[in-house]
Each structure stands twice: as structure tokens, then as C-alpha cells.
Write a protein that binds this DNA or RNA. Structure first.
Lengths: 107, 107
DNA sequence: GCCTTCGGTAAGTACTAGCTTACCGTTCGT
DNA sequence: ACGAACGGTAAGCTAGTACTTACCGAAGGC
């Protein structure tokens, strides 16, 4: 298998093409061929990316005749969102001591 | 420059090591050397990752003597969270028509 | 039944990003 | 002023991943 196996939703979204797929599926569910028409890559490449996204739990697929319709998985997206919330809360509660010192370069 | 330039916070979080750094900085701000002690990589590698995270707006740095203390940037984290919210909302509002058809393999 | 459409898989290639060591500038301590 | 600590940068190597074309199975239309 030359395809990449994502352990994590973050790894899956680390690729710009996969983010484009996710953004596309956020509008409405689409078949593999539809995605390949929009994106600047071949259809097999789309399949490989969809496999990664599916393994990461970010999309779900459903057979519809000969076509296979992929849609965004809200649960997977929510999982990432919760993790970001954790970071965000820790960053705020732990240390506001330098609220007036934003990213100074040097003296 | 052999260092990777992230266009996006997603690209920055696409790397497991950078996620470890972010998780570490979420607890409390740390200097570069402190991070290098905890992480299984060399100090220059940490520096390179911090540059990527800084360019992505996920961390901020502050000079403290000879040391340089990095901390998580709540604004950067919030930006990613908002984007996930958008995806999440679209996924829910656009198509709940198949709420009872989760990831079936085939007939 | 046949052919077409659709999509996943295999094999192979090219590029890029992450790591290392080596080096240099800066700041503090004495 | 000298030395040490801290950290950013350069150059180079390696690994892995994103892409391609070719092939194959499955489901529908006529």
C-alpha cells in the first residue's frame, strides 16, 4: 500500500488537497468523480485522499448505484474542534501575565 | 532556507512533532531548550518547528535574557477553531437527510 | 449478455519536509 | 573583557508521501 495511513485527523488535514476535499464536502456530499472534476488532480489521487480522510473519521461514504457518495462526518470535525478548545482554554487560563507583550522581535 | 514555510495553521499542525510542541506550550510557556529536553529531537529541530508555528501565528515568542520563551497564541488557535465550526455547521445544516445511514460498506 | 461508467488498487517516480551536525551571533556572569 | 549558555541559520541526507498511469472488479443501461 503506497497510500498514507493517517493516525489522526490532524495528519489528514495536513495536506492542502485533503483540506480542499473537506471544504468541498462541507458544501454538499459528492461522488468521487465530481471531486476529481473540481480538483486539479486525477481521480485515483482523489480516491487515495478519501481513504485517508475516511480512516481519520472525517468523512463517511455511501454506495449509490455505481457511484460512491462521500460526505463530511460532523463527529470527526467536532473531535478536532474539542481538542482545539482544550488548547485554547489552557492557553488562556494558564498565563495571561504577558497580555501586553505580543511577539516582540527584540529590544 | 531548508525550512518549511507553512501557509496555514493546518499545515503547521500537520506534523506530529509540532502538535507535541503545541500541546507542551498549552500547559505553560517554555524556552527552546526546555522543549528540546522533553522532545526526542535536537534543539535546532525545535527551533525550525517553532519558526513554522510562529509564521502560522500559533505561537508568540519573547526574549528573556539569553533565552527565548515561546507561548501559545490563543488567537491563532481560535482561528482554526472557527474554521472547523464553519465546516461543522455546514455539514449539519446542509444535509441531515441520511442521519440513519452512517458509513455503510455496501448492500 | 454486452458494454459503459464508476471507483478502488498496484506499481513506480519525483519531490519535499524533517532531522542531523557544524557554525555564528547575542546576552549574561564573573 | 573573557567564557559560557542559549538559540537561530546553513548545508546536506534520508524517508516518506502525493502524484501519475495501468489494471481490475462491480453495478447499471440497452
Amino acid at each position: 500500500m503506497a497510500t498514507y495511513q493517517a493516525d489522526d485527523g490532524w495528519d489528514a488535514l495536513g495536506d492542502p488537497t485533503r483540506r480542499a476535499i473537506v471544504a468541498c464536502l462541507a458544501e454538499r456530499p459528492r461522488a468521487v468523480g465530481e471531486l476529481a472534476e473540481v480538483l486539479p488532480i486525477s481521480r485515483p489521487a482523489v480516491s487515495q485522499h478519501l481513504k485517508v480522510l475516511k480512516d481519520a473519521g472525517l468523512v463517511t461514504d455511501r454506495a449509490a448505484g455505481t457511484r460512491r457518495v462521500y460526505r463530511l462526518n460532523p463527529a470527526g470535525v467536532a473531535a478536532l474542534r474539542d481538542q482545539l478548545d482544550t488548547y485554547w482554554n489552557r492557553a488562556l487560563t494558564g498565563f495571561q501575565d504577558a497580555a501586553e507583550t505580543p511577539t516582540e522581535e527584540e529590544s
